[in-house]
Structures are given as structure tokens and as C-alpha cells.
């Protein structure tokens, strides 16, 4: 019976972790889908999101309190500002190379440079210190036997679901979303049809970065502390999630994140993996996937060659 409760508890933990992965994976997938760039700096965008949220909570927390209202406001502010940061990065670092039709390798290296800049920038600004998110959220929740689910956990999952539904609506129902999907299919045709391609790409960066920022703030609230290197490993894992789902696919990124979150929490419970090897486990999954099923669950297979 205890085993049963452990399994349920781990599923809950896995879903929370998976929600973070999903939100970040969406940004990877959207950017990859539209300009075929593996945005290496995306994990750092998530990290910056956590810090902006921390700052916003510090400022508005005194007025709105550090409960759900304050957190929600901090979350929205962080999403907006980091979204702008994403657009800025696109305009300054990526678009000039896209205009020059530079090789993809140059674009990738630029992304590494952006990642370095954000990473070290935050390290300098924070002196490399941990910051503690002080919130008034307690540990109350629902208990089912030995399984404890806090309200915080429930609200996290619900918030993720809301963000994803909003994104789904945006992509499928609005003109901007349609433009994005069209550009992913054929940029030149879109240009001919009068779609402002650069602007749409910029918007994609805004949305992707805002979602990562949301994940950053939520992770800060959930885990309690943040630091400048929090984006690196989670960025890699979110990319794994995007690949699991099929890179370029929006529902794929959502599902991929949850799958990876569950797999990882399950993996940690296995005696021969444990927490010391859990990153090896995730990377191992990534490598096996890329080698044997690079199109992921929802990805479209490409015609074999040429």
C-alpha cells in the first residue's frame, strides 16, 4: 500500500516538474519551428524571468502582500518584461544574422554568446548569491492517505494549464498565430503575401520568452530560492522535452514536458539511478531519442533527402 502512495506522490511531483519543462519547451519549439534556431539562451531567459519576478515581488509585495495576488502581479510583470527582453535579443543578436543568411552554425554560436551574456550578467548583478523567494504560501493542502498535495502545487498546475490554453487559442484563433504558423511553413511565400515576417518572428520570441519567465517565477515560488545558474540544466531538459514531443510542435512540447517530468521523477526512485545520476538519465533519454526517433511523438517526418 505504501508503494501505491509513493507512486501517486511521485506522479504529482513529476507533473509539477513537467509543467515547468513544458512551459520552457514551448519557447524552444516555437522559435525552432519558425526560424529553425536552437535558442541556446532560452534556459537563461527562464532564469532571468525568475529574477525579474523576484524583483517585482520585492517592489509590489509591500503593497499587494506576498500571497497569491502579489505573486500573480509579479508573474505578469516578469512575463511582460522578459518577453520584451526576448524581442530585444532577437532584434540585436539573431535578426542581423538572419538578414545576412549566415550559416546556422553562426546563429547557434550567437545563441551561446547570448546565453553567456545573460548568465554572467545576472551573476555580476547578484554577486552570484542565492535569492530567497519569501512568500506567505503555506503547506496546507489536501491529504489522501499518505499523499499530500499542497494548494500551491494545485495552483501551479492550474496556472500552467491556463497559460497553455491561452497559447493554444493565440496560435490557432488569432491572426498573429496564423501568421506564425504560416511563416514556419514558407517564409518567402509569407513575405509575398504581405506578412511582416520579422515582426512575427519577434512576436514569437516575446511569447516564448514570456512563457519561460512564467516558469521561472513559478519555479522560484515553488522551490523557494533562485540562483544565476538555474537555467542551464533545466534549459537542456526542456529542450529534451521539446524533442520528445517533436520539435516545432506546440502540443508536442506540452506533452513532452510532462512525459519527461514523470520519467525523471520515476527514474530518481529507481535504486540504480538515484539523484546523483538523474541528469545522466535525462540526457541519456535525449540522446537515445535523437538517435532513434528524432521526430519525437508529434513531429512530422521529413522526406528522406534532398
Amino acid at each position: 500500500m505504501t508503494v501505491f502512495y509513493i507512486v501517486i506522490q511521485q506522479i504529482v511531483n513529476g507533473l509539477i516538474l513537467g509543467s515547468f519543462y513544458s512551459l520552457i519547451a514551448l519557447g524552444y519549439s516555437m522559435v525552432y519551428g519558425i526560424i529553425k534556431l536552437l535558442n541556446f539562451a532560452h534556459g537563461d531567459i527562464y532564469m532571468v524571468g525568475a529574477f525579474v519576478g523576484y524583483g517585482a515581488l520585492g517592489i509590489f509585495g509591500s503593497v499587494l502582500g506576498v500571497g497569491w495576488l502579489g505573486i500573480a502581479v509579479a508573474l505578469l510583470i516578469s512575463m511582460f518584461l522578459v518577453g520584451l527582453l526576448g524581442m530585444l535579443v532577437h532584434r540585436l543578436a539573431y535578426q542581423p544574422l538572419i538578414n545576412k543568411q549566415a550559416p546556422r552554425m553562426s546563429l547557434l554560436i550567437t545563441a551561446v554568446g547570448v546565453s553567456f551574456t545573460l548568465f554572467n550578467g545576472v551573476m555580476v548583478l547578484t554577486n552570484g548569491e542565492y535569492k530567497t523567494f519569501s512568500t506567505s504560501l503555506g503547506y496546507e493542502g489536501i491529504s489522501l492517505g499518505l499523499v499530500n498535495i499542497t494548494y500551491t502545487q494545485i495552483i501551479m498546475v492550474v496556472a500552467t494549464a491556463i497559460l497553455m490554453l491561452a497559447l493554444y487559442w493565440f496560435i490557432n484563433r488569432t491572426m498573429y498565430g496564423k501568421a506564425m504558423r504560416a511563416i514556419a511553413l514558407d517564409q518567402d511565400a509569407c513575405r509575398l503575401m504581405g506578412i511582416n515576417v520579422t515582426k512575427t518572428i519577434s512576436l514569437t520570441f516575446f511569447v516564448g520568452s514570456a512563457l519561460a519567465a512564467a516558469a521561472g517565477v513559478m519555479a522560484g515560488v515553488y522551490y523557494g530560492s533562485i540562483q544565476f545558474y538555474m537555467g542551464f540544466v533545466i534549459g537542456l531538459k526542456a529542450f529534451t522535452a521539446a524533442v520528445i514531443g517533436g520539435i516545432g510542435s506546440i502540443p508536442g512540447a506540452m506533452i513532452g514536458g510532462l512525459v519527461l517530468g514523470l520519467l525523471e521523477t520515476a527514474g530518481t526512485q529507481l535504486p540504480f539511478i538515484g539523484s546523483a545520476w538523474k541528469d545522466v538519465f535525462s540526457f541519456g533519454i535525449l540522446i537515445l531519442l535523437l538517435v532513434f526517433k528524432p521526430t519525437g511523438i508529434f513531429g512530422k517526418s521529413e522526406i528522406e533527402r534532398m
Binding site: V114, F119, N120, G121, V124
Partner: peptide, 11 residues
């Protein structure tokens, strides 16, 4: 930090 910025500029 400068290193990162320079890398982007050079690229």
C-alpha cells in the same frame, strides 16, 4: 559578461 557580449558582436 564582456566575453559573452563580445562573442555576439563578433558573430
Amino acid at each position: 559578461l564582456f566575453f559573452g557580449i563580445m562573442l555576439v558582436i563578433i558573430m
